Simulated assay, not measured.
Amino acid sequence: MSQTHVTNDPPSVSMFRAGVLACMPTIPGYWSIGFAAGAMGTLSGFSIFQIALLAGALYAGSAQFLFYSLWAAGAEMSSVIISVMLINLRYLLMSSSLSPYFRKQSTRKKLLNGLLLTDETFGVAAEYASRHGTLPFSWMFGLNISAWLNWVIASVAGAWLASVVPPSLMEGLSFSLVSMFIGLVLMTWFASKRKILESFTIITAVIITLFASHYLDSSVVVMVAAIISATSATIFLRFIEKTRS
């Protein structure tokens, strides 16, 4: 038993380190947005401890910005909770997309990777899975825990320095989140073996977003675009597979 343990450890440690390294390109984005989120939390009247707790537990940039904004505006708690839930529903789609790679994992491992999943780690993981056909737990945990730690530290740093950094600079950091998302989408597209299907999904989501944004709330638009585009892509893929068979 001891020999088996020694034999399995190095690959796990190696994959964990590889996951940490895979997270490095996204860390500047975590720091810029996390810094701004922490500063916004301070300006909304929260303590550094409360901001750190929220960053670690909620762990969603867009949801934290929304939470602070609604709180500062004096919204009812029920409205805050529902809004945060709506904007975070996309993680169900992301988790479902990666779930086939974790079917043989234990419940504990599934929870660890699922609870720490973000837009950025999903993009990196999807690109890795597309190239290797697998998602080792150690690699995914290294990716996720690195992102989580950097987000919490960045939020605390932003909260601490909020009184020093001008508000205009905080607002200007928002561009980095958009840039990072675009980079992750392109990285996933170039690594995909089904570029036509990926392009079809992206175009469908963009068209739905452009038309629905005039009539629905932005958080609802994101969910509607994601559900319709993903469903359309699945139907299209099954149609192609049936035609070939």
Score class of each variant (00 low, 15 high):
3 Q>Y: 15
7 T>A: 15
10 P>N: 02
13 V>I: 14
13 V>L: 14
14 S>K: 11
16 F>V: 00
16 F>H: 04
18 A>D: 15
18 A>Y: 14
20 V>C: 13
20 V>S: 13
20 V>L: 14
21 L>K: 12
30 Y>R: 08
31 W>Q: 08
33 I>G: 07
33 I>A: 12
36 A>P: 12
38 G>I: 03
38 G>L: 02
41 G>V: 06
41 G>L: 05
41 G>D: 10
41 G>W: 09
43 L>Q: 14
45 G>S: 03
46 F>N: 01
47 S>K: 06
49 F>W: 15
50 Q>H: 05
51 I>S: 07
51 I>L: 09
53 L>D: 05
53 L>H: 04
54 L>Y: 12
56 G>I: 02
58 L>K: 08
61 G>Q: 04
64 Q>M: 05
65 F>R: 02
68 Y>A: 02
68 Y>M: 07
73 A>W: 11
73 A>M: 09
75 A>W: 06
77 M>I: 11
77 M>V: 04
80 V>Q: 07
81 I>E: 07
82 I>N: 00
82 I>T: 01
84 V>K: 04
84 V>W: 05
85 M>F: 13
87 I>M: 10
89 L>K: 04
90 R>W: 04
92 L>I: 08
94 M>Y: 13
95 S>T: 10
98 L>H: 07
99 S>R: 09
101 Y>M: 01
101 Y>P: 00
105 Q>H: 13
105 Q>Y: 14
105 Q>A: 10
108 R>N: 11
111 L>H: 13
112 L>P: 06
116 L>H: 09
116 L>Q: 11
117 L>E: 10
117 L>H: 06
120 E>M: 14
120 E>K: 11
122 F>Y: 10
122 F>K: 03
124 V>H: 05
125 A>R: 04
126 A>E: 13
126 A>T: 06
127 E>F: 10
129 A>Q: 11
130 S>D: 12
135 L>A: 02
136 P>G: 05
136 P>Q: 07
139 W>Q: 02
139 W>F: 13
142 G>R: 08
142 G>T: 04
146 S>P: 04
148 W>I: 03
149 L>N: 04
151 W>Y: 06
151 W>D: 09
154 A>C: 08
155 S>R: 10
162 A>W: 06
164 V>S: 13
164 V>E: 15
164 V>T: 14
164 V>F: 15
166 P>K: 05
167 P>R: 10
167 P>C: 06
167 P>H: 09
168 S>R: 14
176 S>C: 13
177 L>W: 11
180 M>G: 02
181 F>N: 01
181 F>T: 01
182 I>M: 13
182 I>A: 10
182 I>P: 03
183 G>H: 10
183 G>V: 10
188 T>H: 14
192 S>A: 07
194 R>T: 06
194 R>D: 15
195 K>N: 01
197 L>T: 06
200 F>D: 00
204 T>D: 05
209 T>G: 03
210 L>Q: 12
211 F>M: 00
216 L>C: 00
218 S>L: 10
220 V>D: 02
221 V>Y: 06
222 V>I: 12
224 V>Q: 01
228 I>L: 05
229 S>F: 08
230 A>P: 00
236 F>L: 01
238 R>Y: 14
238 R>I: 00
240 I>N: 13
241 E>W: 05
242 K>M: 14
244 R>H: 11
